[in-house]
């Protein structure tokens, strides 16, 4: 199995623990990653506010690079996944638009024919790698842990661009993986709501209310930790959880795991190799419960 790999900005910037953890578990699973060093930022939906065409052109460029390699494209960020899927959907459903976009990337010797479907690691594990192959690799099942899934927005909406109609199982993909690693799912209302990150520097109070609400809700339902496929959600739910707790005037202390950290732990990879010491909310109580040392 081989993928053109699109790690995005945040997995190497604000969440530098994600990129190595994702690469490590892919290596252990035998998923080969061909990184595209010339690929640009997806625009995160922010650039698209100002200039959607420019954003789509940058994403077409990335998709064309994967196409040229003859490889499917893998993401490890829900926001990249959503923004690229939307750009892809616009181009695929409008040949004239695709032609216009191709005229811009032609100078670089690129052409996008529209054959690539970006796919998040979350979906790759279930749909391509397969749970039957993953299950035997779970050598340290996380039995006894109660984990809340947090999808956020861009990997669940809009459903049309994300191919949810053709893949309804994607709506329960996090729960599926939580069960596969032997943990108990803590279902809660906020799992597909917004984490508040996009308005962090614009309306911090609202952003913190969102963080406090989701993490408290999961905590009060008995979750030991939360897992997310989105590093932007992680930045807010983990990095800003202390601030959200102080705004909400309560303790929360809910460790937030990146998806590869959850899978890696269950595969017996050490917390240090998975970068758990970099998580802001301490994962030590969680490791003690698991009986795992750093």
């Amino acid at each position: 199995m081989k993928y053109a790999f699109y790690p995005g900005c945040v997995s190497r910037g604000g969440c530098p623990e994600l990129y190595p953890a994702a690469k490590l578990i892919c290596q252990r699973l035998g998923i080969e990653l061909d990184e595209m060093p010339s690929a640009a930022c997806c625009g995160a939906g922010v650039m698209q506010e100002k200039n959607r065409l420019l954003g789509d052109v940058l994403n077409a460029r990335t998709l064309a690079m994967a196409e040229k390699r003859g490889l499917p494209l893998m993401t490890i960020c829900s926001t990249c996944q959503g923004v690229m899927s939307q750009a892809n959907h616009r181009m695929k459903s409008d040949p004239a638009y695709l032609a216009q976009i191709n005229s811009h990337i032609a100078e670089e010797g690129l052409e996008y024919k529209g054959t690539v479907q970006p796919k998040h690691l979350l979906w790759v594990l279930i749909e391509d790698f397969g749970l039957d192959k993953l299950t035997p690799l779970i050598t340290k099942p996380l039995g006894g842990l109660r984990i809340a899934p947090f999808y956020g927005c861009y990997i669940v909406r809009p459903t049309e661009a994300l191919g949810i109609q053709d893949h309804p199982e994607r709506q329960r993909s996090l729960e599926t993986l939580i069960s596969t690693v032997g943990a108990t799912v803590v279902d809660f209302e906020g799992k597909t709501r917004c984490c508040g990150f996009p308005i962090l520097t614009i309306n911090e109070k609202n952003s913190m209310t969102m963080v406090g609400k989701h993490t408290s809700q999961a905590k009060d339902l008995g979750a030991d930790a939360m897992v997310t496929p989105c590093p932007l959600c992680h930045l807010n739910l983990d990095g800003y959880q202390p601030k959200a707790a102080s705004q909400a005037q309560r303790r929360i202390d809910l460790p937030i795991l990146h998806l590869p950290q959850l899978i890696g732990l269950a595969m017996g990879i050490s917390p240090r190799e998975l970068g758990l010491q970099r998580n802001i909310v301490s994962t030590k109580p969680l490791m003690m419960k698991l009986g795992v040392g750093a």
Partner: peptide, 9 residues
Amino acid sequence: MWDCTRCYE
């Protein structure tokens, strides 16, 4: 307009 989180709901 700037308070929208772009959540697509």
